[in-house]
Amino acid sequence: MKSAVFYSSEDIRYEERNRPVIGDDEVLLKLRACGLCGTDIYKATHETVPPGTVLGHEIAGDIVETGKRVTNVQTGDRVYVAHHVPCFTCDFCQKGFYTMCPQFTATNVEPGGFSEYIRVPALHVKHTMGKLPKDVSYEQGAMVEPVACCLHGFERAPVHPGDSVLILGAGQIGCIQLQLAKYYLAGKVMITDVNENRLLQARSLGADIAFHPAAEPVENRVMKETDGKGADLVIISVGSSALLKEAFQAVARGGTILVFAHFPKGDVPIPAERFFNDEVKVVGAYSSHPYHYREALELLKAKVVNTEKMVTHRYPLSQLLQAIECARHPEGESVKIMMYPDE
């Protein structure tokens, strides 16, 4: 089989690999679509994974082989699958912090989503795999995991009807979050980005206000749009720790800042007095967990999250490097990129 294999930030090879062999409780999946995630781009760009790694985890495909003890799916089923599984029993899981579970990042599919065939281990078959209805496309199936990530974020920082929401970053995650915020009856959804094409896309997906932060200071614009109150919820969807300061400037008294992006290591000065004086909350949200996959699928099926509008580019696996270059272009037109087997 063929896989797109990472070796360095400028070296991703489309090469032959052995097709995985499955066990009695596992399945073999033929890839039909795999989303290019921001974490894939980050790992490839910053070389945070070892050479020889196959990235990709937003997966949809067809089951072509099942182990003899598998009963919940069968050959021919169209499915989605996610890449991490908690244990459901440790102290973290008991408290609902499934993504903090020690087992969570120890599980994965083999070799990764950017491959023609993928072995799905037993825990994933049981907990993170689901069938796609006939009226749900493979692209929608590949969006189940990122939508579930955003649902986990809103679980940590809920939107209440009438809330004002500010999203810093109109990339693929920011655009999912704005659609969900509207679904949760946010009163006004504002979004920023340095890419004008993404701002146009955000407007088409329902953003009430979409603006470039260089055109007007974010704090000024948010205060103008909220009658001086500030945003009830500020979501940081870009991996820049400098945005934490911007978030504090824009958040309302009693508001919440949701950190939904990977920050580089290092300290960031923040106005600590706001915790006491204004009861501002800062929470983080990492990845997704199995309790949100069914909900994500239903939201995609109902087009609450509009995959057709979000997917702007499609590439074969052999052009993964070109897809990553397209995604990280500062003035590019990409929002969501989907990868497909070359056939």
Results as ranks from 00 to 15, higher is better:
Leu200Val: 07
Leu185Trp: 15
Pro213Cys: 02
Val282Ser: 11
Val259Asp: 03
His292Tyr: 14
Asn197Arg: 15
Leu233Asn: 15
Leu185Gly: 01
Lys188Gly: 07
Asn195His: 07
Ala285His: 04
Arg203Gln: 13
Val304Glu: 11
Ser288Asn: 14
Ala302Phe: 09
Met190Trp: 05
Tyr286Leu: 14
Glu295Arg: 15
Ile209Phe: 01
Leu244Glu: 01
Ala186Leu: 07
Asp227Phe: 04
Gly284Trp: 13
Ser287Ile: 00
Asn306Thr: 01
Ile236Gln: 14
Phe263Asp: 07
Ile270Asp: 01
Ser237Cys: 07
Glu273Lys: 13
Ile235Arg: 11
Thr307Pro: 12
Val234Asn: 09
Phe276Ala: 06
Ala215Cys: 07
His292Trp: 13
Thr307Asp: 03
Ala215Trp: 08
Ala215Thr: 03
Ala296Trp: 08
Asp278Arg: 12
Leu244Gln: 06
Pro290Phe: 00
Lys229Val: 00
Phe248Val: 03
Val259Asn: 08
Pro269Arg: 14
Ser240Asn: 13
Ala231Arg: 10
Gly239Gln: 11
Ala252Arg: 15
Thr312Gln: 11
Glu196Val: 09
Glu219Ser: 10
Val268Tyr: 02
Thr312His: 09
His212Leu: 08
Ser241His: 07
Lys309Tyr: 06
Val311Asp: 05
Ala296Thr: 03
Pro271Trp: 11
Pro271Met: 09
Leu243Lys: 04
Val194Asp: 05
Lys245Cys: 07
Asn306Met: 02
Val222Tyr: 08
His313Arg: 15
Ser241Arg: 13
Thr226Val: 01
Lys229Arg: 15
Val251Gly: 09
Lys229Pro: 01
Asp208Glu: 08
Ile257Glu: 05
Glu308Cys: 07
Ala214Leu: 11
Ser204Gly: 04
Val268Asp: 04
Ser204Gln: 08
Gly255Val: 00
Ala215Glu: 05
Val234His: 06
Gly187Ala: 09
Phe276Trp: 00
Glu216Ser: 09
Ile257Arg: 06
Val222Ala: 07
Thr256Arg: 13
Lys188Tyr: 03
Glu273Thr: 04
Met310Asn: 13
Glu216Lys: 15
Ile236Gly: 12
Ser240Lys: 12
Glu225Tyr: 13
Asp193Lys: 12
Leu297Cys: 11
Val251Leu: 08
Asp208Trp: 03
Thr256Ile: 01
Asn197Cys: 07
Ile257Tyr: 02
Asn195Met: 07
Val222Pro: 14
Met223Gly: 03
Leu205Asp: 02
Ala202Cys: 08
Met190Glu: 05
Val238Ser: 08
Asp232Gly: 05
Leu258Arg: 10
Ala261Pro: 06
